[in-house]
Each structure stands twice: as structure tokens, then as C-alpha cells.
């Protein structure tokens, strides 16, 4: 199977600063679920920002190929329309913009790129209803302004709901478990599990092992000081839980 994402010797930084990522190599195929774990300051969020094309970050060395094409030079919106989805650690509030309206605008932007017809309001509502059952989301949430006044759990559920609607090829979940109580975590994890698909890769970035109890990864990587210092299957995560990051970090 061909690679969906190929990261080679990636060095990146916040514009003008020092390198935070110092030579990342990672290969992700469609259908796989990868977990990237690591201590604070390892560069986890930088990696997700660089993949999504967040302004203010720059690649200094190396390459990121997505479906065989270099991502550098593409804007965040172009990457999104090509099927890269980032579930935010801190989803952003957009006052006055109805959640449904926002999602429809996003979906139609993505569909247009795929060469599919844009959905009108009625078709869109039908698509929404079909996906609602995936997640425990109330209608009320859909009618409210994007993320405004949402609880932590609601925000994360909303992110996964957007992912369900947009059907990305590559989903990056940035600390999706942070700030969730156990029930919310279970609900979000169930949603993600239902979105596992042979045509879709998922990269989970997380600080804690507990998310992996609910979403079982095919591969686990440990990121420390800007490099991947260990890779393995899910047992690596269990190992980490017992022994901590310290011994791996010192090896970096």
C-alpha cells in the first residue's frame, strides 16, 4: 500500500525561533492509527501545526509528502480541502456564526474540491442526521454559535462530529483527550473508533496513555525533544505508563 503521509528529516520552528522539531521521520498509511506521545515541550503541538499549515510555523529542513506531494507551500485551507483534518486541542469560538452554517460552508468547500456537488440546506440536514447517531450530540449544540459557551466535552465532541461530516483522509487529533471527564472521553473515543476506515489514517497526539485504552493504535511513537525516540506497537504505551518518559528522553 502506498504511503498517505511521509515525513522525512523534518526540522521546523516558530518563525524566527529555534528549531522545535529536529529531524522527524514518520510514515503513515491509509487505514492506520498512529499515536504520538511525549512529554510537555517535546514538539507534539508543533508537529500538528506544521502538518496543518498553521501560519507562523516554518519548515527549515526536510519534507512532508501527502499522497506523494509536498505539503510545503500549500495554505491551511488547501490542505484541508485535500483531506487533512485537525481536531483542535482548543477549538476556537466564533461568535454569531451558527454551528450548522459553519459546517455546511466547510463541507461544501471540501466537496467542491472533490468535484462533488454542493449540498443545499435540506440535503445537508439529511447528511447531518445520518452522522448524528455516531456521536452523542444534541440538536441544541448544532444550533448554537460555533464553540461559544460549549463545555470542554461539547467542544471535543463537536470536533469529532465535524470530522465525521468532512470525511478526511488524514485526521490529526491534537490532545483530544485533554479536559475530558471519563464519560466524555468514552463518547469521543467511540466516535473516533466508528470513523476508523481502511481509506483513512488517524494520527493521535496525546500526553496520556488513557486515550489509548479507548482508541487502540496500530503504532505508538514517542516524541522527545523534537525527535521520535521510540516506535512500537501499543505495548510501548503501556510500557511508558509504567516507566515514564524520562529514560527515553535522555536517550534522545
Amino acid at each position: 500500500m502506498t504511503n498517505l503521509l511521509t515525513i522525512e528529516n523534518l526540522h521546523a520552528r516558530i518563525s524566527g525561533g529555534r528549531d522545535i522539531l529536529k529531524g522527524i521521520d514518520l510514515t503513515v498509511k491509509a487505514g492506520e492509527v498512529h499515536a504520538i506521545m511525549g512529554p510537555n515541550g517535546a514538539g507534539k503541538s508543533t508537529l500538528s501545526s506544521v502538518l496543518a499549515g498553521k501560519p507562523g510555523y516554518e519548515v527549515t529542513v526536510g519534507s512532508v509528502l501527502y499522497q506523494g506531494n509536498e505539503l510545503q507551500g500549500l495554505g491551511p485551507d488547501e490542505r484541508a480541502r485535500e483531506g487533512i483534518f485537525l481536531a483542535f486541542q482548543y477549538p476556537v469560538e466564533i461568535p454569531g456564526v451558527n454551528n450548522m452554517y459553519f459546517l455546511r460552508a466547510a463541507l461544501n468547500a471540501v466537496r467542491k474540491q472533490r468535484g462533488e456537488a454542493e449540498l443545499d440546506a435540506a440535503q445537508f440536514m439529511k447528511a447531518v442526521k445520518a452522522k448524528l447517531s455516531l456521536l452523542d450530540i444534541s440538536d441544541d449544540l448544532l444550533k448554537r454559535p460555533v464553540n461559544v459557551g460549549f463545555s470542554g466535552g461539547e467542544k471535543k465532541r463537536n470536533e469529532i462530529f465535524q470530522m465525521a461530516m468532512l470525511e478526511p483522509k488524514l485526521a490529526i487529533l491534537d490532545e483530544t483527550d485533554s479536559g475530558l471527564d471519563i464519560d466524555a472521553l468514552r463518547a469521543v473515543a467511540n466516535g473516533v473508533n466508528r470513523l476508523r476506515d481502511p481509506g483513512r489514517a488517524i494520527v493521535m497526539i496525546t500526553h496520556y496513555q488513557r486515550l489509548l485504552d479507548y482508541i487502540e493504535p496500530d503504532f505508538v511513537h514517542v516524541l522527545a525533544d523534537g525527535k521520535i525516540v521510540a516506535s512500537g506497537d501499543k505495548t510501548l504505551a503501556t510500557d511508558l505508563e509504567a516507566r515514564g518518559y524520562a529514560h527515553l528522553a535522555s536517550a534522545a
Binding site: P55, G75, D77, F88, A105, A106, L107, A109
Partner: peptide
């Protein structure tokens, strides 16, 4: 806010 919207596929 801009990045969030763009990450969902909207142009600037």
C-alpha cells in the same frame, strides 16, 4: 479564528 476556519477548508 482565521486558522480554525481555514483548517476546515474555507479560504481566507
Amino acid at each position: 479564528q482565521m486558522f480554525y476556519c481555514q483548517q476546515r477548508g474555507l479560504t481566507q
